[in-house]
């Protein structure tokens, strides 16, 4: 009996530990964010760019960068991911499916630093600069496409799960009415799994916002960036801004609030992804309830 209790406490301890760590992370974020917000000159939050070492913390720059990259990423990932999901769930024969699913998972496992260099050395010159010959080598567009490729397997996998969870009986009902495969996919399976598909999309956005390495490498801005809404120019996202500062060896800590600004950006990132994940979770629950 004592042994039983001991084991119970052991597992409780491991479970509790992960909660404690999460809480500590949030706490640290919150404390430094508080320091930053109370001490910063509020006008510097709305200036010409993000140059933390010069005490310019224009948050629009980072937002614009993140939004643009995410937008490009989803323009790539949504059709690719959904298309792959429809193919896997509705068209692929079991054997093809068994072969393709692991490949998709391998794609999801490519280290983002590799994709970052791929974005910089191939996507940027071969795709982006051909689209627009005035594009800089480092640009948000290439970063966005790279992030899109990274997010595609995630979107595909969640969307496929959602479509697979639509009962076969519904497909049979549709085929029995003389519907073709496309009709069944578009008019029956997709509407029946729409909440799961929306969830896949939102989680994709959440992942795209959080992606760091691809942007840090391919978008090119190190340290600071001017405000820009042009995807063909270099730019800075929230994540890449944090990485480029934290990665530098020079006095991140010394110069005024530079160090604290990292936590401020981190906090916003955290809240944003938390919100998106919660919304996605609600959609997933809705699709589960239906069947």
């Amino acid at each position: 009996m004592r042994k039983e209790a001991l084991i119970r406490w052991l597992f409780l301890g491991t479970a509790a530990l992960s909660i404690v760590i999460s809480a500590l992370i949030v706490l640290t974020l919150a404390r430094e964010t508080f320091t930053f917000v109370t001490q910063v000159d509020l006008s510097s939050l709305w200036s010409e760019g993000w140059f933390p070492r010069r005490d310019l913390y224009d948050i629009r720059t980072l937002f614009a960068g993140s939004v643009l990259v995410t937008l490009v990423a989803m323009v790539v990932a949504a059709p690719l991911g959904m298309g792959a999901a429809v193919y896997l769930a509705e068209y692929a024969r079991p054997r093809v499916r068994r072969a393709l699913k692991p490949i998709l998972e391998i794609l999801a496992g490519i280290p983002s630093v590799v994709l970052g260099f791929f974005a910089l050395t191939w996507i940027s010159p071969e795709i982006v600069q051909r689209m627009n010959d005035e594009a800089a080598l480092f640009n948000l567009m290439a970063a966005g496409i790279g992030v899109g490729l990274l997010v595609t397997p995630l979107v595909a996998s969640i969307a496929e799960d959602a479509m697979k969870s639509v009962p076969t009986a519904l497909r049979e009902a549709s085929y029995g009415m003389g519907a073709r495969k496309v009709t069944t996919a578009v008019r029956v399976v997709i509407p029946a799994s729409i909440s799961g598909l929306v969830a896949a999309f939102i989680l994709g956005i959440s992942r795209a916002i959080g992606e760091t390495m691809v942007v840090a490498i391919a978008a090119g801005a190190s340290g600071g960036s001017l405000f820009s809404m042009n995807v063909f120019e270099r730019g800075q996202t929230m994540t890449a801004a944090m990485a480029s500062m934290a990665g530098g060896t020079d006095a991140v800590k010394g110069a005024g609030l530079t160090f604290q600004s990292l936590f401020f950006v981190g906090m916003m990132l955290f809240l944003l992804t938390l919100l998106l994940n919660m919304v996605a979770g609600r959609f997933v629950r809705r699709v589960r309830q239906k069947y």
Binding site: A169, A173, M177, K290
Partner: peptide
């Protein structure tokens, strides 16, 4: 046309 064992209306 076909009617199945378990009622399967579309949602």
């Amino acid at each position: 046309g076909m009617v199945f064992q378990k009622p399967n209306p579309f949602p």
